[in-house]
Simulated scan of single mutants.
Amino acid sequence: MGIINFQGKRTNAEKKETEPILVSDYMTTTIISFKESEPIENVIQTLIENKISGGPVVNENNELIGIISEGDCMKQISESRYYNLPMDKNNTVGKAMIKEVETIDGNMNVFDAVNKFLESKRRRFPIVENGKLVGQISQKDILKAAMKLKGNTWK
């Protein structure tokens, strides 16, 4: 006598489509930003106090106009030493910032963002919607996302 199955006809299990993991799910929305007219010394102090390596530069309408990093600040220090002068109070963010800024779309998949980080060798990307700065994603944010996804399917 064989084994009788009383469960009835089996149907194929529906495959669940996994939702894409978006940059907007892991981006930082509390951003330390700078103004174009700020002195470099203020930026240096802010970077040190907040233990960050740079930040976006915005205008009065919160539109992204540049980005400034520790490296940009160090160039200003190096130039003042070259001329054997103290750092000029007129050294502003506007003179030191990078104006050509790459951004990431908040609707981009986190795994696509990883590729963008690897290709560009940047540490952070601003996220802009309708011309306004809405967030920022860093390499550390991506690593946090990866740790949360550990064990899930990676799509």
Score class of each variant (00 low, 15 high):
residue 126 P to A: 11
residue 1 M to E: 13
residue 145 A to L: 03
residue 59 N to H: 05
residue 19 E to N: 07
residue 90 N to R: 12
residue 58 V to E: 03
residue 4 I to D: 15
residue 86 P to C: 04
residue 91 N to K: 10
residue 72 D to A: 09
residue 133 L to I: 02
residue 138 S to F: 04
residue 102 E to P: 00
residue 105 D to V: 11
residue 101 V to N: 01
residue 138 S to Y: 06
residue 141 D to I: 04
residue 154 W to H: 00
residue 73 C to R: 05
residue 131 G to S: 11
residue 7 Q to Y: 08
residue 93 V to A: 06
residue 141 D to M: 05
residue 3 I to W: 02
residue 121 K to Y: 06
residue 132 K to E: 11
residue 64 L to P: 11
residue 87 M to Q: 09
residue 12 N to E: 13
residue 80 S to V: 07
residue 143 L to H: 02
residue 96 A to Y: 01
residue 135 G to C: 01
residue 132 K to A: 05
residue 53 S to E: 12
residue 107 N to P: 01
residue 64 L to M: 09
residue 77 I to W: 02
residue 9 K to C: 08
residue 33 S to K: 13
residue 110 V to H: 02
residue 40 I to A: 08
residue 58 V to C: 01
residue 90 N to P: 01
residue 43 V to W: 04
residue 152 N to P: 00
residue 140 K to I: 15
residue 4 I to A: 09
residue 92 T to M: 08
residue 138 S to Q: 09
residue 78 S to R: 12
residue 117 F to P: 07
residue 14 E to S: 10
residue 70 E to T: 13
residue 59 N to P: 09
residue 116 K to I: 12
residue 65 I to H: 05
residue 96 A to H: 01
residue 95 K to A: 13
residue 6 F to R: 15
residue 56 P to V: 07
residue 150 K to A: 11
residue 30 T to H: 06
residue 28 T to Q: 03
residue 137 I to L: 05
residue 61 N to I: 04
residue 21 I to Y: 01
residue 71 G to R: 07
residue 67 I to N: 07
residue 120 S to D: 08
residue 101 V to T: 05
residue 53 S to R: 13
residue 55 G to Q: 03
residue 143 L to N: 08
residue 2 G to S: 15
residue 121 K to L: 02
residue 135 G to D: 03
residue 16 K to V: 14
residue 68 I to K: 08
residue 122 R to Y: 05
residue 61 N to Q: 14
residue 41 E to G: 03
residue 90 N to D: 14
residue 88 D to K: 08
residue 13 A to V: 12
residue 45 Q to I: 10
residue 33 S to Q: 12
residue 125 F to W: 04
residue 74 M to E: 10
residue 35 K to R: 14
residue 135 G to P: 04
residue 17 E to S: 02
residue 121 K to I: 00
residue 34 F to C: 07
residue 133 L to F: 01
residue 115 N to V: 08
residue 52 I to A: 13
residue 139 Q to H: 10
residue 118 L to V: 14
residue 76 Q to E: 10
residue 98 I to N: 12
residue 75 K to L: 12
residue 108 M to S: 14
residue 20 P to L: 05
residue 23 V to T: 11
residue 67 I to V: 15
residue 79 E to A: 14
residue 100 E to F: 02
residue 56 P to K: 05
residue 32 I to K: 13
residue 126 P to L: 05
residue 118 L to D: 15
residue 71 G to M: 02
residue 92 T to R: 11
residue 99 K to D: 08
residue 109 N to E: 11
residue 107 N to Q: 10
residue 142 I to D: 10
residue 10 R to M: 11
residue 139 Q to S: 14
residue 83 Y to L: 13
residue 105 D to W: 04
residue 46 T to W: 00
residue 95 K to R: 12
residue 89 K to N: 09
residue 116 K to P: 05
residue 137 I to A: 03
residue 145 A to V: 09
residue 148 K to Y: 00
residue 139 Q to T: 15
residue 17 E to D: 00
residue 29 T to R: 10
residue 134 V to P: 01
residue 149 L to F: 00
residue 70 E to P: 11
residue 73 C to Y: 02
residue 70 E to M: 03
residue 56 P to F: 02
residue 22 L to S: 09
residue 11 T to L: 06
residue 122 R to V: 03
residue 51 K to T: 14
residue 119 E to Y: 12
residue 144 K to N: 11
residue 99 K to S: 13
residue 75 K to E: 14
residue 112 D to R: 10
residue 122 R to C: 02
